[in-house]
Design a protein around this nucleic acid. Structure first.
Lengths: 240, 240
DNA sequence: AACCCGGGCGACCATCGGACGCTGGTGCC
DNA sequence: GGCACCAGCGTCCGATGGTCGCCCGGGTT
């Protein structure tokens, strides 16, 4: 039959079910490039996992089979973030904000790779940091990157990209006040809402116009804040 | 607690679960504007349903409760398309290609509306014709628009947008040869692949550069064809 | 050592983009 | 009227964007 979309006989067979996208066949992933450690993890503030790098030990499965006397270093969970000022190294079992922001740059790099690959394979080419990118990052060994975390702090990174000055001030302020990360994170919204106001409330546009931000989805909460602020604005002056 | 993302007390309550997006609350939809019939359905070639417009009768449910002697006019399925040349009205219980292409323009209009609405509500604003747009079209009474159909013929519409001349020629050719719609549809791929070749195989870019096409996803089949043709190109000259 | 605070991220969910193939409309004989 | 063709579109499916809250790490007492 000629239909069922199998046109171009020479093509049909060759192209058919050949999308490695969704599983990213380990073949392609394991190899070389090693983005994770040499350049990237080294740059910012690796209080995280390369303190001693006891390499991968067995993954403890809920209190079972844990050598006694060895409380290991194969941490599963990343150390929590604390508010640090720019250039400051986090003390103790914590990670600083420079490290947090570097994670976003790493993701951008992983996105680049995914884009390159999908172009070579003739697949849909992602424009944003998608699930596929997180999966790719994991396969490349960047297990410290995960979706919920990255999405959680996107707007903090946004402020960092859009107004480094103000972002740095806020970090210093919240550090000196000994506020926790959650409080700092919340505080990052306000300056962004102000920026949106100055850009006709087009927060989407604000993101898209910035080279580094373009690849990140605007967080729902930020969009909502902009929306309600806009409404309050136009409420309070009853003309127009 | 201050976290759990409920910051800005005055905002939290007001904004919370107020996304009408996914159901499009009939309230907002039923009303006015009536895109469907007056301007749009009237323009092209409504061999479709307004021949007599016996308004909505009961939807027959698989041979049950059908007034005898009344084999009604409440057609469920649209009349199939036939290959028509530009300006030609389809004869009999068929629809012509001008009508098909108009459906795409209607979708663009529905997308506009959805974008307007989502901007007003501070929701994510779709850039492409998404499920939401099809749902909106249906709610607005354009029941003759549906996703599988529109996706099926996207590349035909693409040719129509990108090279009207060639599209028209192809239509005439296939009409004169008395080819069926499926054959014409298949034939539409080739000129597009050629266009992609002339644009560095960037079919995505070809779509995005065209005002009307930008809102449509590049069909998988077309992307795959471009990919395999590209491979054949570079195979056949062994240098580089 | 025990406790409690805070936040990392596993895992879930609604919805998405995408596709297949059944159903039945349609024209021909 | 009956049949064979073929295409419309209901309906499914894997994967996506987005989120919640459990679990436990870590600092404090």
């Amino acid at each position: 039959r000629a239909d069922n979309d199998l046109m171009f006989p020479e093509v049909a067979g060759a192209v058919g079910p050949f999308n490695l996208n969704s599983k990213e066949a380990a073949l392609f992933e394991q190899s070389h490039t090693q983005l994770g450690t040499p350049r990237l993890l080294a740059i910012p503030e690796p209080s995280s996992d390369n303190e001693k790098k006891k390499v991968g030990r067995k993954k403890q499965k809920h209190k079972m089979s844990q050598e006694p006397g060895d409380d290991g270093d194969d941490r599963t969970r990343e150390h929590p973030f604390i508010v640090t000022e720019p250039g400051e190294l986090a003390r103790g079992k914590k990670n600083g904000l420079d490290y947090l922001f570097d994670l976003y740059e790493q993701c951008a790099r992983f996105l680049d790779e995914v884009q390159q690959m999908s172009k070579e394979r003739g697949e849909k080419c992602p424009v944003k940091v998608t699930n596929q990118v997180f999966r790719h990052a994991k396969l490349k060994g960047a297990s410290y990157i995960n979706k919920p975390k990255m999405r959680h702090y996107v707007h903090c990174y946004a402020l960092h990209c859009l107004d480094l000055q103000q972002s740095n001030h806020l970090r210093k302020l919240y550090k000196d006040r000994r506020e926790n990360v959650g409080a700092w994170r919340q505080a990052c919204y306000l300056p962004l809402v102000e920026m949106a106001r100055q850009n006709g409330w087009d927060i989407e546009g604000v993101f898209n116009r910035n080279e580094k931000l373009r690849i990140w989805y605007v967080p729902t909460k930020l969009r909502q804040l902009c929306h309600t602020e806009k409404s309050k604005d136009s409420d309070s002056c009853s003309y127009e």
